[in-house]
Design a protein around this nucleic acid. Structure first.
Lengths: 190, 190
DNA sequence: TTTTTGACCATAAATCAATTTTGGTCATCC
DNA sequence: GGATGACCAAAATTGATTTATGGTCAAAAA
C-alpha cells in the first residue's frame, strides 16, 4: 500500500470532519495506520499536509465547474453555470464548508490563508475563461483581471452575503441571473 | 448646559477614541461631568446610547455624500463621487474606522449589528438615488434594490477588499471608474 | 542500508479559581 | 424631583497549573 496515499486520505478525512485546528497529527497517523514520524517523511509539517489536501480539492472544484459548462452555450450561460457551481461546491463540499466556517469562527491563520488562495485560484480560472472568450471574439477586450474579480465578488455578494443581512430571504437564481444579465454580462459582449 | 447634549458629546468622544467595548459608562459619565445615573435618565442602556451616536454619524455621512455631488453631472459621475466619498468616510472618520476595526478584531455583537445597519442605510440611500434617476428618465427602470446592493458591494470589493489580497497594490480610482463605467453604469443608462 | 516508529520534549493551548471590572439600579441628597 | 454615586450581580480578566500538540530523533524493523 502506498503510504503517502494512505496519509493523504486520512488527512482529507480528518480535515473534512474536524477542520484544520482540531485535526491532530497523532489522529492522522492513527487513521492512516502509520507512525506519526512517517507523516514527516512525506510532508514537512502540518501546514504542508494541509496544503496538499486543499490542492486536491481545488482540482476537484475545477473539474466540477468545467462539468457545469455546456458546449455551444453563450459565455453568459456558461459563466453563470460555472460560478453557481463553484459557490454550491463551496457550501456543499464537506472540507470547503468546514474551512469557511473555521475561518470565520476561529480565524485559524492557516485556514484564512488557504481560503484566500482558493479565491485567487477561482478568480484566475474565471479570468482564463474570459480571455478565451475574448480570443474567440465572443467578448470584447476588457481588463480581464478586474472583470473576473468583479464577477466573482458579485456572485459572492448575491449568493452568499445577501442572505446574511436579509433574514433567510435567499435570492432566487433567476433574479440573480436577471440582474447580472442586465448589468455586467450584456456590456461584456462583443 | 444641556445634560443630554453633554452626554452625547462625551459618548461620541469616547466611542471614537476607544470603541464600543472599551468605553465604560463610568468613563462617559466622567467625561460628561455627570453622575452615571444621569445617563440612564436619557438612555435606556449602553447600546441605546451607542445607537444614538451612530445615528448622528450616519447623518454626517449622508451630508458628506450629498456634498460630493455636482449639480448637472451624470448619474455615473455622481454615483461614483458619492460612493467614493462614503468609502473614504468609512476609513477616515474616527468612529467609523474604529467600529470597522472592532467589528473585525473583537467581533463585538453590538458593533457588528450596527455596522450592518449602516450598510443597509447606505444601500437604501443609493437605491433612492437610483429611483430618482429613473424618474428623471436618466436611467432605465431596473431592480433598484438589487442594483443598489450590487453597486455598493462592487465598490466595497474594488476599494476595500482588493488591497487585502493584493499586497498594498491599491487600485487607482481611474481604473475602478473605468471598470464600472464599461460594465455596470453603461448598461443602466436609459 | 533504508524506512518506519513512537517515546520524548519544548511550547502552546485549555482549565479554573480568585480577582477585578462593569452595566445597571435605587435610596439618598441637594 | 432630578441628579447622584455607593452598591450589586454578572461578566470579564488574570495567572498559576494542567493538558495537549507539533515536531524530533535514537532505536527498531524491514
Amino acid at each position: 500500500m502506498d503510504r503517502r496515499q494512505e496519509i493523504l486520505e486520512a488527512a482529507a478525512k480528518s480535515f473534512s470532519l474536524f477542520g484544520y485546528k482540531a485535526t491532530t497529527m497523532d489522529q492522522v497517523a492513527k487513521i492512516a495506520n502509520v507512525g506519526k514520524g512517517t507523516i514527516y517523511t512525506f510532508f514537512a509539517n502540518k501546514e504542508e499536509l494541509f496544503n496538499a489536501i486543499v490542492l486536491q480539492m481545488v482540482e476537484e472544484m475545477r473539474v466540477a465547474s468545467d462539468a457545469a459548462t455546456v458546449e455551444g452555450a453563450t459565455f453568459e450561460q456558461n459563466a453563470h453555470a460555472r460560478l453557481m457551481q463553484m459557490l454550491k461546491f463551496r457550501e456543499t463540499h464537506q472540507l470547503y464548508a468546514k474551512l469557511v466556517d473555521e475561518g470565520k469562527e476561529l480565524r485559524t491563520p492557516a485556514v484564512i490563508e488557504v481560503l484566500a488562495e482558493i479565491e485567487n485560484e477561482i478568480v484566475s480560472y474565471i479570468r482564463a475563461k474570459i480571455e478565451l472568450a475574448i480570443d474567440k471574439g465572443e467578448l470584447k477586450p476588457c481588463d480581464s483581471e478586474l472583470v473576473a474579480y468583479l464577477l466573482f465578488k458579485s456572485y459572492m455578494a448575491l449568493v452568499v452575503d445577501w442572505g446574511k443581512t436579509h433574514e433567510n430571504e435567499e435570492l432566487s437564481e433567476e433574479r440573480i441571473a436577471g440582474l447580472l444579465r442586465s448589468t455586467i454580462f450584456t456590456s461584456l459582449l462583443a
